[in-house]
């Protein structure tokens, strides 16, 4: 594995690491004994990391969620589902590599597991379209989930996508409809569904495989109605304000948990999931298994009723008692307005 990429806000850690390297180089030449000094330095690095990661801003979390060495869906599959058997294609158009899924055993339970997949280099990124699914990805997911529902297999989904692909062919093949149908159909599968946001939860493209009985999220993952850059472009007319937008959107795991929109936050290894992928995978596997165990005690009808109620309750608004008579609208005679866009 190549050395871990350091994020801009990790500069203090980088500086300390450089000093440590210098010390080690000296030690290697046998010029001075630096063991004590190096140990101290390592402690310092650890403390610095604790300090930085204990107080990440929303925008910094977005950067951790996008870390190029963060474990992706396939990494978790390799770690957690040794007998994973991939099933390809939507049987309508093609096989979208931005969503991959299949059958396998997770912690002793058979599952249908699928997730959005990003690439690590140019070749795999082109193959996976940078984790941005096209309509056939959502339709493959639907096909696989229907298969699972038919055979009573619990469904596990992993979300890590900047969003659905906004391209000509996505529109021509109706990506909006593909997502919408998944939303509707995921309320009809009488098997447990556990959803985990493992990295980026990019808007409708994430939600398209995101309806479930439990919604989990990794400590530094984010889930947002719009990308911070997109929000900044609209509100500040400049994508450079993405940091401010990240704060405004309340998109962190902690914000979402507080809002009651996710059920559990899975702690990440210090410095992010990429610092210790095997530990992160174990924690993820344990959490999914625990929730599947709980859910497996419920009947199909109970699952469906609970899932409906869970999402039905999402939303915050004020409501006053309806007035006895509706006031006549002000603008009854106003002319037809032109679109504002």
């Amino acid at each position: 594995m190549p050395p871990l990429t350091l994020l801009p806000f990790e500069k203090p850690i980088a500086d300390l690491q450089a000093k440590l390297e210098e010390l080690r180089a000296l030690s290697a030449k046998g010029e001075v004994d630096v063991d004590a000094e190096a140990g101290l330095m390592e402690k310092k690095i650890q403390a610095m990391r604790q300090k930085i990661y204990g107080d990440l801003s929303p925008w910094q979390k977005v950067q951790v969620a996008r870390h190029p060495q963060r474990p992706y869906t396939r990494d978790y599959l390799e770690a957690l589902v040794p007998d994973f058997t991939e099933l390809h294609g939507d049987r309508l158009y093609g096989d979208d590599r931005a969503i991959q899924g299949g059958l396998g055993t997770l912690g002793g339970r058979r599952v249908l597991i699928l997730g959005t997949q990003k690439g690590r280099d140019t070749r795999t990124n082109l193959e996976c379209n940078f984790g941005c699914p096209r309509p056939e990805g959502y339709r493959k997911a639907l096909r696989l989930m229907r298969l699972a529902a038919r055979f009573g297999v619990p469904i596990v989904t992993l979300i890590d996508t900047p969003g659905a692909f906004p391209g000509l062919e996505s529109e021509e093949r109706h990506v909006a409809e593909a997502i919408a149908v998944n939303l509707r159909e995921m309320f009809t599968f009488p098997v447990p569904i556990v959803v985990t946001v493992i990295g980026e939860g990019g808007s409708g493209g994430a939600l398209g495989i995101g309806v479930g009985d439990r919604i989990l999220i990794l400590e530094h993952a984010y889930y947002s109605v719009i990308s911070p850059e997109g929000c900044a472009a609209i509100l500040w007319k400049d994508r450079a304000f993405a940091d401010r937008a990240s704060e405004a959107l309340k998109l962190t795991a902690q914000d979402l948990h507080q809002a009651g929109l996710v059920d559990e936050i899975l702690p990440e290894p210090l410095g992010g999931a990429h610092q210790d992928p095997p530990a992160m995978a174990r924690r993820l596997g344990e959490a999914i298994g625990r929730h599947l165990d709980e859910l497996s005690r419920l009947s199909g009808d109970e699952l469906l009723a609970g899932r409906y109620e869970k999402f039905r309750a999402m939303g915050v608004y004020a409501e006053e008692a309806a007035p006895a008579e509706t006031a006549p609208p002000e603008d009854a005679d106003a002319p037809p307005a032109e679109p504002a866009d």
Binding site: R184, V225, L249, K250, L261, F311, G315
Partner: peptide, 23 residues
Amino acid sequence: GGARMYEGMFSLMQMAKTSAAIA
């Protein structure tokens, strides 16, 4: 025009909520 940014993820979840009712 789409989901209302000002309400963040509460807005996004309305997509699931309305679709559930259609089911």
